[in-house]
Amino acid sequence: MSKVKYFYDSETLSYKKIERKKGRKLGITLLGITGCFLGGFILLLIYLNIPQIQTPQEKALKRELHNIQMQYGLLNKKMDQIQDVMANIEDRDNNIYRLYFEANPIPEEQRMAGFGGINRYKDLEGFDNSKLITETTKRMDILTKRLVVQSRSLDEITELAREKGKLLQAIPAIQPVNNQDLSRIASGYGWRNDPFTKVRKFHYGMDFTAPRGTPVYATGDGKVARADNRSTGYGNHIRIDHGYGYTSLYGHLYKYNVRRGQSVKRGDVIGYVGSTGRSEAPHLHYEIFKDDERINPINFYYGNLSADEFSQVLEKAERENQSLD
């Protein structure tokens, strides 16, 4: 209950009750409310403009945000290092590995395919750190794509290496008769005098003179396609299919050491020097076919001849003398 106040009236020599005016009371109330709002507004302005004033929850969230930003920064530094390593691997892949195995380089457009046009990161927009998150996510996606492309490329290189190894073993790459067993190289690839007609004609192989019974070696891995005497002029002869378009022929043999359909390795003894068929003396007539076309065997002796030995063989093979078949 509010207190009743009185005042002393000197004229009437009595106490009279003080009556409060209603308008004044309302004004005081409004003034109080206005003061409260004004004070609150001032405090709000002070709070918003003084960043040091933070609630514990805000401080915790700010620390967490700062930690996430720092982690993203470290992640981007690591991606910089990974990109450098990746670029080095891609460069070696294109300019060494794929070049060596005669495979087409992978263009940059293929390694980066799928990241143009459509905006893949729309869901990450609209936040305070959208740019940082979007750029980092995009870099991760690009690196992942490049790793997938490079992994497939290395799988292809591995398969090419296996095939290259098989090819190197299959190519006829040694002399069919050992140097120590040779009497001489009687004739090489090119125009020579026929021993029977004395007319110049093209000689499609090389003649290795050696005593009858001298071992003849397979010059590369392959499978015996023929071992018979049913080809005019060659007498007893062997043909080895090496794959990859290569075939080698060994003519005028004394006898065989293999049969048709048999697999042989480079250096295996497949027969022995003779003088069967159209032959003037014991020797081995040797030919190489590539895609059914005869080619010069002189280019395929790098497997067991030194540089000096090859030079001597080359000199003898180029002499225009009489062939033995």
Rank of each mutant, 00 (worst) to 15 (best):
S183C: 03
S183R: 08
R184Q: 09
R184P: 01
A186N: 14
S187E: 14
G188V: 09
G188I: 12
G188K: 07
G188T: 12
G188S: 13
Y189H: 13
Y189S: 04
G190N: 09
G190H: 08
W191Q: 14
R192A: 12
N193Y: 14
D194S: 14
P195H: 12
F196S: 03
F196Q: 03
T197P: 06
T197I: 05
K198C: 05
K198S: 11
R200G: 09
K201M: 11
H203Y: 07
H203L: 08
G205W: 09
G205F: 09
M206Y: 04
D207P: 04
D207S: 05
D207T: 08
F208W: 10
F208Q: 05
T209L: 10
T209I: 05
T209A: 15
R212H: 03
R212D: 06
R212K: 11
G213W: 00
T214S: 00
Y217R: 11
Y217M: 03
A218N: 07
D221H: 12
D221Y: 11
D221S: 10
D221E: 13
G222V: 03
K223Y: 11
K223L: 05
K223E: 15
V224S: 05
A225H: 06
A225D: 08
A225M: 06
R226S: 10
A227T: 02
A227S: 08
D228L: 02
R230C: 05
R230S: 13
S231A: 11
T232A: 15
T232I: 13
G233T: 13
G233C: 13
Y234G: 05
H237F: 07
I238A: 01
I238K: 04
I240H: 15
D241R: 13
H242Q: 10
G243L: 01
Y244F: 15
Y244V: 01
G245Q: 12
Y246R: 04
Y246Q: 09
T247I: 13
S248V: 02
L249R: 04
Y250M: 02
G251R: 00
G251Q: 00
H252N: 08
H252V: 07
L253W: 01
L253S: 00
L253R: 00
Y254P: 00
Y254H: 15
K255R: 15
K255V: 05
K255G: 11
Y256H: 01
V258L: 04
R260M: 15
G261S: 10
Q262N: 06
V264K: 03
